[in-house]
Computed example of a mutant assay.
Amino acid sequence: MTSTNRPTILLLAGHWLGAWAWDEVLAHLPADHARAVAMTLPGLDPDDRGRTTRTLDDQVHAIRDAIAAHGDEPAVLVAHSGANAPVTLLLDRHPDLVTRVIWVDSGPVADGSVLAPDLPVGVDELPLPPFDDLARQASLEGLSDDVLKRFGERAVPEPGPVLRQAVALSNDARRGVPTTLVCCSISGAQVQALVQAGHPMFAEVGTLADLDIIDLPTGHWPMWSRPRDLADVILSAAAKTA
């Protein structure tokens, strides 16, 4: 099968990250897979002078534009961590344009969710916290000192409007899009237990009609700790709906 028969794979990293975060994963994808594209979401381009005003809606529009730019055919979306909010919104608004969503140590958010509800209105942006603080929020397992240094140097503060905007969902068709959960810092068994327990963070997972769960044990940033393995998982999941 040639690359033109394959769906576009759009890679979206979480908070503070741009397209550069996927460089090592892209290096492990086949050379003929020309339709794997890493995106920098609006608000995370350090050269964008208006980036602190960017919203979740801006990010959704950018993802929609990226799909249009690659033939306007259903794409595979790979969403890491905090990319879950714009990708959930894209699924709600355009479920027909997504052939599969692959959540990387992440998952869909529920209606009304706000990424940082306690962020004061006057705060324009949220910078990457010190790594000691970050480690209390998410696992840094598998990240070398060099990787952490690069993370700290290249991280872009997250725009305040993105963190304060509530996710408004209305289209149940989003739940029918084939879904793969790649579980890294917590296992698939733990995710399933949290779903069964009714944990609000995993409420949407329990509503998905077509769900695969894959364990890739490592920290919260597998694109750096296990890039080859993550590339293999992405290609395998994408092939199921190609």
Rank of each mutant, 00 (worst) to 15 (best):
V195E: 13
G188K: 12
P157G: 08
A193G: 10
T180N: 12
R154H: 08
M1N: 08
L10P: 00
E153H: 06
P108F: 10
V121E: 13
H70M: 03
E125I: 00
T2N: 15
V156T: 10
N84F: 14
E24H: 11
G82P: 02
S139H: 08
K149L: 14
D92F: 04
Q137L: 15
R174H: 09
D132R: 02
S236M: 12
W20A: 05
R51Y: 14
I67F: 02
D96L: 04
A239M: 02
E73V: 01
R51H: 02
R136A: 15
A75R: 00
M201P: 05
Q165F: 05
V123S: 03
T2S: 15
R154C: 09
W221M: 15
K240I: 15
A79W: 03
S225C: 15
T52C: 15
R175V: 14
L29M: 12
P127F: 02
Q190C: 10
G71Y: 01
S187A: 07
R100K: 12
L211N: 04
T8N: 08
A36G: 11
D132H: 05
D132A: 14
C183G: 01
L17S: 13
E125G: 00
D47I: 03
D65R: 07
A75M: 02
N5Y: 03
A66Y: 12
A155I: 05
L26S: 04
D232N: 13
D212H: 08
S139Y: 06
D92G: 04
V104R: 00
T8R: 01
L235C: 09
G82C: 08
A110I: 06
G198P: 03
S106P: 00
D118K: 04
P159I: 09
R228V: 09
A135T: 04
L134C: 11
L90E: 13
G198I: 13
H61I: 14
P86D: 08
T180K: 09
D96E: 14
Q137D: 11
F131D: 15
R228H: 13
W16Y: 02
H94L: 13
G122W: 06
D111R: 09
W16F: 03
A168G: 13
L235P: 07
D47R: 07
A110C: 01
C183F: 08
W103I: 01
A31H: 12
P157T: 11
F202Q: 08
D172K: 07
L77R: 09
V233S: 07
G107H: 02
